[in-house]
Design a binder for these strands. Structure first.
Lengths: 192, 192, 192, 192
DNA sequence: AATGAATGAGGATTCATTCAT
DNA sequence: GATGAATGAATCCTCATTCAT
């Protein structure tokens, strides 16, 4: 029998994915999780904490998925592996992804605790960019800027697919990925 | 005396900007707008319509700002003007921008009406990419993909600044903008 | 051009007939009557007075219809004329009748003013029974009791027809009317 | 401890009896019943359902009272027992009766469900008339017409008493009851 | 006299949270 | 630990009424 706290988190995630954060009632969570309403309060102080805990939890899952095997191979291989994982994660209509998107751009209530977790979880990404810069092959920009330039497109492209707007061919995705990689590289002056 | 409908929209925008869509009560809107609660219902059928109308309204403002003078100059000038406007818009902590961000990534409830408005308003952007492809200088990808590759970073970078995480130097922004432009171009083979 | 006060009364009647007294809003009345909401208040102090005035007005109309020509003919002819008029009035799906039925059995808030009006308007009916008793042909009961015994069935039968439950043949109505008449008569002892 | 659902129904009945259906607020019901406003919604979906359920409930109570022992004795005894019970029920100023009267003649919204319940509950009355007709002693009219002719007066007379208009002597009620019984009988031709 | 925009109190309903069992 | 009935504050919305024009 699965951990009850987790049961509740998954139920919450599912509801947020389908009805949005606004459409989240504790009773619904209880029903979906198959526990009594009061039980939720044994695991989470209140609704806010439930949402916050889910947010952390989801963030950890996302990071785990995206950064799997992140340390293997050359810089380019590492970058592209992450980019493609981001893209394939972003395409999914899973509760995890759908609820993640809800959170990602929420209000400015960008809770500091959450921000720290983000920083910790995505440290490998930062390191990738730092290594690239140290090696002199990446543009001299803040890692976050390099992230924005090269990784945000992965999510953005995935979003259009997830929303059913556009279906890309595999070669298009590869092209996009490659363009993103080249974007942040310092171009090699052609030698004569 | 200012238009009352607009007064209500601006009040709504302000509240959404500061407390998020969830933290929006009709009473708050009424107070902020300086009207009676019932008055809102003379201009908007219900809360949903108020939010929807604001969404349209904000979208139009954003588009107007970003696409100002969009048709002047070369492709590159046009692209960079839009990119920089996007970036400078995205940096702002104005109610318009803050509430826009709330909407932009909301749930899948990406209302069809809204989507059509988006398409109409951002048609000039699409045209820019179509022209670039027709001229054979841009990568053979869907305009939305080109948008994702080259424009999303403008917003993403602006977001980190707006959230107080990083302050970029002007030359960094120019670099980022230039990299975005080059990203979607077909590189010219160096001639000997 | 019709009297505006009356316009409002007719509109009110119509709405009550179709949606019941509960479903009566001043705005609706204004729309139906083709006047502004504020105008109603030039003719009626408030909603209560509007309803009360309509009640009186409807009562007068009902009485006028039912008691038309009430004084012509023998007692029996007079009785049966009234009975049949009641029945034919009660069958109608007119706003007047439908709103009358709403009022007739309302709460105990059987306003004294209304009661006096009822008494005045239906005085001819009372007189009919008083004459019958004076002539020694009607049962020695209070006129109201005689009314209840002989006239209520006219309305009750009409109601079932109006509600579409039963369609009676003309001869059945005549029989019912005749039975009602005989009910309140003192039976004549058969002579040898 | 009394059933809470019933507590709420009785409170509703009481308020309707004194202030009419229009004067029914959920808060009032809650206060009168001694529960929180939200509690009502555990037992009834919304105000409409509360009213509908009360209507059914009251109808059942009325039928139970009126039809008690309805099957004992001769046709005449059965008829008169019911008539007198109707009359004595109708005289009462109990919440049950007062709210019943509110419902009985309400709008045309004579809900089908309610109508079916009425039919079921008052089946014994219909049977009484059918038996009378089968025995050849009652007028050849639809049972509903026989009901209208002979039973409506019981309620109508009771109403005047309840409203404090007239106090009848017991012998008057007996007379009225007897007249109602005779009304629907086929008179026996006097033999020579 | 007439209008109809504005008001704001009041009502139905929801829902996070508590607590007796 | 778990339950779920009960709570009541908070919210959306309606609508009688007013009043400046």
């Amino acid at each position: 029998m699965p951990n009850k706290r987790d049961l509740i988190l998954r139920a919450t995630e599912k509801i947020i994915a389908s009805s949005g954060i606004q459409g989240l009632s504790m009773q619904q969570v209880a029903n979906e999780a198959g526990v009594a309403a009061g039980t939720i309060y044994r695991y989470f102080k209140d609704k806010n904490e439930l949402i916050l805990e889910l947010r952390k939890n989801v963030l950890a899952h996302v990071a785990a998925f995206i950064l799997e095997d992140h340390q293997l191979g050359t810089l380019e291989q590492r970058f592209k592996r992450i980019w493609l994982k981001m893209h394939s994660f972003g395409k999914q209509r899973t509760p995890t992804n759908l609820s993640y998107e809800q959170y990602a751009h929420l209000p400015e209530i960008n809770n500091e605790e959450i921000r720290n977790i983000e920083i910790t979880l995505f440290a490998p990404l930062k390191q990738l960019f730092d290594e690239g810069k140290a090696a002199g092959i990446m543009q001299p920009l803040h890692p976050r800027a390099l992230y924005a330039l090269s990784m945000e497109p992965a999510m953005a492209i995935a979003r259009t697919t997830r929303r059913g707007q556009i279906q890309y061919e595999p070669h298009e995705i590869e092209l996009a990925c490659d363009l993103c990689w080249k974007t942040i590289l310092i171009p090699i002056k052609p030698t004569h």
